[in-house]
Amino acid sequence: MLLDLFVSVLVLLGAAFTLLGSIGLARLPDFFMRLHGPTKATTLGVGALVLASLLHVGGEAGTGGLRELAVALFLFITAPITAHLLSKAALAEERRSRSRSEIDEG
């Protein structure tokens, strides 16, 4: 019963943070600001959902829930790398569009 309550709270929190990440993505005004929502909120939100699933279903037989933890760990390791690469791409894109407009002026 207590476990059920705990899982419910985790599910609600996880879903709420997942939604918050996407709200940030949808409503903030420029790319680098939009990057913050998915990088932080979505990662923690989905991490909470993975933990909830692990607690509720009790993990796959014989693995003791290590595979669920592997999903969560993988998300936490890849999120900053994705953010880093995306911001590098955005900087390159910005530089490219600026140089194009300079050529147009000249």
């Binding site: 997942t18 990662t43 989905v46 993975v50």
Partner: peptide, 20 residues
């Protein structure tokens, strides 16, 4: 690309909810 990446992570969220 950021939107697509977030979409794929949200799909994981749906899968986990389905598991529960």
């Amino acid at each position: 690309i950021l939107a697509l990446d977030t979409l794929s992570i949200n799909t994981i969220a749906v899968v986990m909810l389905l598991d529960i």
